[in-house]
Design a protein around this nucleic acid. Structure first.
Length: 277
DNA sequence: AATGGCCTGGTG
DNA sequence: CACCAGGCCATT
């Protein structure tokens, strides 16, 4: 569930407390979380200064010296935050990194373990995240980038936009919200969109993400930031999670369809988002 | 391009 | 007890 706005919220929370600081000790790293044992993480991280924290889509990249990168993905249930070293630990806290004199720790907690916490060198990083692996970041995607990515796709919009190679950062919530705002059916094919429709989709993606970031993301289920402050954007969702409820624009019942992308719930207004242009 | 598996907490 | 949440990768 953490999508781009939630990850951006975490980045803004964690960045001032990590960038420029040194990782003094890998206090704990659970074996089940990654294929890298604690001693391997310790060898790569201890004594290193965090040079920058970047985000691309839902991925977080802590830049370290010598082209090393600490990669963090929150999966569905991941949480990343700074805590006092003596603060009680959440269940399923898989990694704890002591910073500077050890009074504070960066902790990674992930009950469902869909997330990732791993150290990459330059070659492993580019093999995984290099050219063509991730699409442009959704926050500032342009119409021409979307046109490039969708222009020849025979898949429907819902599937194409969920694919991180098309555009990076959208998940089930914000795809449904962006399509509603763009008045496009999730069943439409990418290659069938007109110029004005592509422009609408571009603007919808950017504006829904900007507004969600302004509200610190959506806190449905278990997403919380830092000390546990919830985001507020779930109060502004127009279609996600509103199956059978009236559309906020036209009062038609919002549809919930699991066949558009199998296994995924798609929420949309059949009147505001018609299948034919 | 479509599907299954990973994983576990919460709900009916 | 069955099922659902779902991002991402591997497989078909």
């Amino acid at each position: 569930m953490p999508e781009l706005p939630e990850v951006e919220t975490v980045v803004r929370d964690v960045r001032p407390q990590t960038v420029g600081r040194t990782i003094s000790k890998v206090v704990h790293a659970s074996a089940k979380m990654s294929d890298q044992p604690r001693r391997e993480l310790a060898r790569g991280l201890e004594g290193e200064r965090i040079l920058a924290l970047d985000r691309h889509g839902k991925w977080m990249f802590f830049r370290l010296p010598r082209s090393m990168t600490l990669v963090v993905h929150l999966g569905m249930t991941g949480r990343l935050a700074i805590y006092a070293a003596d603060a009680p630990r959440l269940p399923h806290t898989h990694v704890r990194l002591a910073l500077e004199d050890g009074r504070f720790e960066l902790r990674f907690c992930d009950p469902r373990r869909f997330g990732e916490f791993g150290l990459y060198d330059r070659s492993r990083f580019s093999a995984r995240f290099g050219a063509g692996k991730l699409g442009p970041d959704a926050r500032f995607v342009t119409k021409s980038q979307l046109s490039q990515a969708l222009g020849r796709s025979g898949r429907n919009l819902k599937a194409a936009l969920l694919d991180q190679k098309t555009v990076a950062g959208l998940g089930n919530i914000y795809v449904d919200e962006a399509l509603f705002r763009a008045r496009l059916s999730p069943r439409r094919r990418g290659r069938d969109l007109s110029g004005p429709e592509l422009a609408r989709l571009t603007a919808a993606i950017r504006s829904v993400l900007r507004q969600a970031i302004d509200r610190h993301g959506s806190s449905i289920r278990d997403f919380l930031v830092g000390e546990g402050t919830p985001g507020e954007y779930h109060h502004y969702l127009q279609v996600y999670g509103r199956g059978n409820q009236p559309c906020k624009k036209c009062s038609t019942a919002i549809e919930l369809d699991r066949r558009i992308v199998s296994g995924r719930a798609s929420h949309f207004c059949p009147r505001c988002q018609p299948d034919e242009p």
